[in-house]
């Protein structure tokens, strides 16, 4: 079976001033559809960059990247944006909700941007599963960190993306809320067979995944 994510020799080099700073130094990775994968490693090991490349937020410098049949070679910025719109859902450490919108509108803006129309059944199913139906009319400042992250997860999956990319989703949460969020992600993975790639430096959080990949200095050191 073809993997949903496949990278070979993936490199990403940032140019800072006149200095080339390699963030990814040749990453080979294969993730099957429906897998829940955790990527762990110390700060600066390149895990966030890997997530950004796989999500099409930035382009690879070298190597092959194939995500759900989309080869990133030769993809323009607009192509990657379109790809992201239809295939990827992001969850960030800092929730990244739009502060002026209610939880409901923070979720539905994703469907608006995708342009495939609002699906009330999907909305109901996702918000119920994440336990935020009572909080939908609240703005982010009126929600706890755990609630905000659950809204962010709902936003990320509302459009049924092929892959959910989570960047330290429990990094700003206390233990109790971290566990709730991790349980939700596990539930999403099981209920909707959602492919999840989660980045974390917390091994306890990583334990919830089917598979743990370790990174160091821009390379995968164990899988």
């Amino acid at each position: 079976m073809e993997p949903i994510i496949s990278t070979k020799g993936l490199k990403k080099i940032f140019r800072i001033g006149k200095v080339d700073v390699p963030a990814l130094r040749g990453v080979d990775l294969r993730v099957q559809e429906g897998e829940f994968v955790a990527v762990v490693g110390p700060s600066g090991c390149g895990k966030s960059t890997l997530l950004h490349v796989l999500g099409g937020l930035t382009s690879p410098t070298e190597g092959h990247v194939l995500v759900d049949g989309n080869d990133f070679r030769g993809m323009s910025d607009a192509d990657r944006t379109r790809f992201r719109r239809h295939k990827i859902g992001f969850v960030f450490q800092r929730y990244n909700l739009l502060p002026t919108l209610t939880a409901r509108h923070n979720i539905s803006i994703a469907t608006h941007i995708q342009g495939n129309g609002f699906n009330p059944h999907r909305f109901q199913a996702v918000t119920s599963m994440l336990g935020i139906t009572e909080k939908l009319e609240h703005r982010p400042y009126a929600l706890s960190g755990g609630e905000q992250q659950r809204v962010a997860i709902a936003r990320a999956v509302i459009c049924e993306p092929k892959i959910l990319l989570a960047d330290e989703p429990t990094g700003n949460l206390d233990t109790e809320n971290s566990q709730i969020v991790l349980d939700m992600m596990r539930e999403l993975n099981r209920t909707f067979r959602q492919t999840i790639l989660m980045i974390t430096h917390n091994l306890e959080a990583a334990a919830v995944a089917d598979r743990i990949i370790r990174m160091r200095d821009g390379r995968i050191i164990s899988d």
């Binding site: 990244n96 909700l97 941007i113």
Partner: peptide
């Protein structure tokens, strides 16, 4: 800036 980044991460195009 951050909000624009959020919209972009959701797939908002330049035109949007």
């Amino acid at each position: 800036t951050r909000e624009i980044g959020i919209l972009k991460s959701l797939g908002a195009s330049k035109r949007y």
